[in-house]
Simulated assay, not measured.
Amino acid sequence: MINKRLIRDFLYFPHLVIDAIFCYYYLGFWKPTWRLRGFPLIQKHRKAKILIGEKLILCSDPAKNSIGVFQKVIIKALNPSSNIKIGNNVGISGATISGRDITIGDNVLIGSGVLITDSDAHPIHPKDRNNAELIKNAPVHIEDDVFIGARSIILKGVTIGSGSVIGAGSVVSSSIPPMSICAGNPARVLKNII
């Protein structure tokens, strides 16, 4: 009996070549365990760092996600000091990851339409909004085994503890302890995972 994984890998081979060219062009590196379902949007300052582990899946194709995606996966590291780290075995569907200091652990699932940002994007006071030096930033850390539900927003300065689940449509503005189920706006702990 022929191994189904070998058949899938064989059928995926033409896409593998295109994925490799795309990733080398935009990131400067590529790993053969990555799978791109449609092309993501990757914007990177030439001095910024984007580090990605093995077995990454980026889904930008609405047909390849059970609830669909309304945008491509977007990864933006536009500041020269930007440092975005994505661990091993991470799946991202139509989400935006944008900032200077964002760390995503291993075995993380990021649902369709999620926004992860470590910045306010502009100052709060109207008189200061054209002054980029006054933009507030704080690192975002998403630990191992986290699942972030569709359309959630993860804001600056947040750490999501390992094994936690963020309910769909949540706005996470403060850190979440490990092994928690959280939801709401602002997100709060509903119960612990035992």
Rank of each mutant, 00 (worst) to 15 (best):
G68T: 02
S82C: 12
I86V: 11
K64T: 11
E54V: 09
S82N: 03
A48L: 02
N79R: 11
S82L: 00
I57G: 03
D61P: 01
G53H: 03
K72P: 01
I74M: 12
V69N: 00
S66C: 13
V69W: 01
V73N: 05
Q71V: 05
K85A: 11
K64P: 06
N65H: 15
K85T: 12
F70V: 14
F70S: 15
S81L: 14
L56K: 04
P62K: 11
C59L: 05
K76P: 01
K55V: 03
A48Q: 04
G68I: 00
N79P: 00
K76N: 09
L51M: 14
I50Y: 07
S60W: 04
V69F: 05
L58Q: 06
I75K: 06
K85Q: 12
A77H: 06
G53F: 05
A48T: 09
D61G: 01
K55I: 02
K49F: 00
Q71T: 04
S81C: 10
A63D: 15
S60G: 04
V73T: 08
K72G: 02
G53E: 11
K85R: 13
K76M: 12
L56D: 05
I74F: 10
I84A: 04
I52K: 07
V69H: 08
I57Y: 04
N83S: 08
K49C: 10
P80L: 06
K76Y: 13
A48P: 08
A48S: 07
D61I: 02
K85H: 10
I57W: 01
P80E: 11
K47S: 15
K72S: 07
I74L: 13
Q71S: 11
I74W: 08
P62D: 10
K55Q: 12
N83M: 06
V69Q: 01
P80A: 07
I75D: 04
N79W: 13
I67E: 10
N83T: 07
A77E: 01
I74T: 10
A48R: 02
N65G: 08
I84M: 05
D61A: 03
D61Y: 06
L56R: 04
S82R: 06
K85Y: 10
